[in-house]
Each structure stands twice: as C-alpha cells, then as structure tokens.
C-alpha cells in the first residue's frame, strides 16, 4: 500500500481524507509530550494561560526517548501507551493539533474529539525504538527540561512511519482489525 506523506503544519483538509489503516510517512517538525507534559499543558489551558509552544496544526508524539549516546541525534524513541493521555486529548485537540501519535487502543471520548476537531490518531510501532530512532534527524528541548525524558522536545523527522489508527470519521484499526481476525 502506498503511504501518504504528512508534512506539518497540517490543515483539516490534510487529515480528513485519511482512513483507519492508511500508511503515512511524517516528515518535518513534530513535538513530543507524554504524561507529565500533558498534565502541565492541560492545566495552562484551564487557567487560560499561554502555552510554551504553538500547537496549531502540529503533530504530537507520545514518547520519552532514551538519552542520545555521543554523536547521535537521539536514543531509542518509540511510542508510549496512548490510553494514558486519553483524559487530556480532547483539550489538546481543541488547540488545533491535527494528529497525535502513540500506540494502542483509545477510548470513545478520543474518537468523538477526533471527529469534532478534524484530527487523526496515528499509531507508530511500539517497541521499535531503535528502528524509529533512525528516522529522527534532530531533537531540541522546547519546554520543561526539569521533566527529563518527559520534557517537550521538537523533533525533525524524515519519513517517520505510522498507521492511521483512528480517523476523524469513527474508523478504528484496532477494532476493525480484531473483528477481521478474531
């Protein structure tokens, strides 16, 4: 299957054509955020305060990389379990984020928010941290350095592979794939 190339910042039109099961390759800038960063961003939104980074049209990747060894852009950088971010995701998507990327199934609130905000959930391959690291060209700390691996990093990626796991029309690869083989 041919992969669709996504180059952030993305518009609604860029993601509305995607369907669960489509292969994508992400190139350009993406941002990392996992549990602790989500908690902080959601608190800022709730208090009406300015965020440390403009997320309109951006892709958020749920990952906490290992530190790079000398001479490397990054250490291992595969996705973490997305379901832990479910409670924050409607808020994050309301900021104009067009794609979130992680691993594993997610709840109905996320499906509804993807629909309402015209966004998609991408799945990267869990446990393939070494393979995915080769698609990351550079990393730059953007916010919350005190969180260590949980800080927000800006990544430059090239042909970073993922699958459309949940589209903005209710499609869900985990549910549909399982129904096909279960």
């Amino acid at each position: 299957m041919t992969a669709v190339t996504l180059t952030p910042p993305l518009t609604a039109a860029d993601v509305l054509g995607l369907r669960a099961g489509d292969r994508v390759l992400v190139s350009g800038t993406i941002y990392t955020a996992r549990d602790a960063a989500h908690q902080r961003l959601a608190a800022l939104v709730e208090q009406g305060e300015e965020l440390p980074v403009d997320l309109d049209g951006q892709v958020i990747y749920y990952t906490g990389p290992t530190p790079p060894s000398p001479g490397r852009a990054t250490g291992a950088a595969g996705p973490t379990t997305s379901a832990r971010m479910d409670r924050f995701t409607p808020t994050i998507l309301s900021l104009g984020v067009r794609a979130v990327m992680g691993k594993g199934e997610r709840g109905e609130d996320v499906a509804a928010a993807l629909h309402d905000c015209s966004a998609v959930y991408l799945a990267a391959l869990g446990g393939a941290g070494a393979l995915l690291a080769r698609r990351i060209i550079s990393t730059e700390m953007v916010a919350y350095p005190e969180l260590g691996t949980e800080a927000i990093f800006r990544l430059q990626v090239s042909d970073f592979p993922a699958i459309v796991a949940m589209d903005s029309h209710g499609g869900d690869i985990f549910r549909e794939g399982r129904a096909r083989y279960g």
Binding site: T63, G64, P65, T66, S69, R72, G75, A76, A77, G78, T80, L125, G126, G127, A128, G129, A130, L131, A133, R134, T149
Partner: peptide
C-alpha cells in the same frame, strides 16, 4: 509487516547499540 519490522529493530539495536525500546 510488523513482525518484519521487529526483526529489523532487533538488528538495528544490536548494530547501533541503541536500546530496543525507549522504555529501558
């Protein structure tokens, strides 16, 4: 495809000396 990627990942981890998974 996933299984093939996992075999490739194991090869890259060993040759690049990068952890198999970021959750060490």
């Amino acid at each position: 495809e996933v299984l093939a990627s996992l075999i490739e990942n194991a090869g890259i981890a060993a040759s690049d000396r990068v952890p198999l998974c970021q959750d060490t």
